[in-house]
Design a protein around this nucleic acid. Structure first.
Length: 347
DNA sequence: GAGGCGTGGCT
DNA sequence: TAGCCAAGCCT
């Protein structure tokens, strides 16, 4: 354990006052708390997603839906399309459910306690604590992947993740100040993303280097230790590009599961071996146009792209005929956009 | 507890 | 360059 626990928060807050990143959802250090709506929206977008990726989505969302009432009134389809490309699409479904709960059951106001926030869709232990601290000034123990790394190094905690999480939480609790808990949390995350980085930490720039047991070991990058990952399996599939009258057939994927609720090209099964034209939307003269690859969280996907035109006099299958010229506005996940780009390259 | 669930940046 | 990793949540 670091010799002087009480020195960590003041040193970190001083550093934050001078070095805080300027972010569109963040109030400058020392100023009144930012709009809870913006804090909530940014925190959900930032779940497992880096700042640079989130920023343009955040700007687009607040311009279009500036508060809970406007977001609660959005159509599911337009919300899902606006989220396309950001990933983890359950977040978008929960975002809408949460906005509607706030608008309809909480008088348009976000609960201002960790417990109240935790009960809302899409808000887990981390996000509830972060919003309580950042938007409402509550003392809350905020632990994300950055904080895990910073704390595991400060305390040189030897236990591998995920088993070591309770010890990390206890250690974080021991250095969280009563005042400015929101700034403290954001300072820890700025430190983790810019200085206390995973591979090669910039310890010479670190404001708490002198308190850091991991630095003292000479190998801070060794913390936190992690259990080995499982290998990702390879799967194969077919994406179907069915044209008719300068339009292409799109479908809505099932509400839950992979890419749930998103607009997409029709697909066959994603299996261990290439499925060929199984489950094509119509019986047509399918031609293989190329292939696209994509990595998901837990498997890799390699897809054949097959194209055809709708045979004359054949009844149209279920789905939307989307104008090919405006396909960018359909809001499809990335693997389908890759297939779209492939087809555009062949025109 | 462990696995499902996206995507892009970095080394 | 091919992993590794990320402001996690839900079941």
């Amino acid at each position: 354990m670091p010799a002087n626990l009480s020195a960590i928060a003041p040193a970190l807050l001083d550093w934050y006052d001078a070095n805080a990143r300027s972010l569109p959802w963040r109030a400058p250090p020392g100023t009144p708390a930012p709009d809870p709506y913006r804090v909530w929206l940014s925190e959900v977008m930032l779940q497992q997603t880096q700042v640079a990726t989130v920023r343009p989505y955040f700007e687009k969302f607040v311009a279009r839906w500036p508060d809970f009432a406007s977001l609660a009134a959005a159509e599911d389809a337009e919300l899902m399309a606006a989220w396309a490309g950001l990933g983890y699409y359950a977040r978008a479904r929960n975002l809408l459910a949460c906005a509607r709960a706030v608008a309809n059951e909480h008088g348009g106001m976000l609960p201002d306690t960790e417990e109240g926030l935790r009960a809302l869709p899409g808000l887990g232990a981390y996000t509830a604590a972060a919003i309580a601290a950042i938007a409402f000034g509550r003392r809350a123990v905020v632990v994300d992947a950055n904080v895990e790394r910073v704390v595991a190094r400060l305390f040189a905690l030897p236990q591998p993740l995920p088993a070591g999480r309770p010890a990390i939480r206890t250690a974080t609790e021991s250095i969280t100040p009563d005042a400015r808990a929101g700034d403290f949390a954001q300072a820890m995350m700025d430190l983790g993303s810019g200085i206390c980085t995973p591979r090669t930490p910039r310890c010479l720039l670190c404001p708490v280097r002198t308190e850091c047991d991991g630095f003292a070991t000479g190998h801070p990058e060794a913390f936190p230790r992690k259990a080995p990952r499982r290998e990702k399996p390879q799967r194969h599939g077919t994406l179907f590009w069915l044209e008719h009258d300068a339009r292409v057939l799109l479908v809505r994927r099932p509400a839950k599961g992979l890419l749930g609720g998103m607009r997409a090209l029709p697909t066959g099964p994603w299996a261990e071996t290439p499925p060929g034209m199984a489950e094509a939307p119509v019986d047509a003269d399918w031609q293989v146009m190329g292939a696209v690859a994509h990595g998901f969280t837990h498997f890799r996907l390699s897809c054949t792209v097959a194209a055809a035109t709708l045979p004359a006099h054949m009844p149209a299958p279920d789905g939307e005929w989307w104008p090919i010229d405006s396909l960018d506005e359909a809001g499809m996940p990335t693997v389908f956009v890759r297939a779209q780009r492939l087809m555009e390259g062949l025109r």
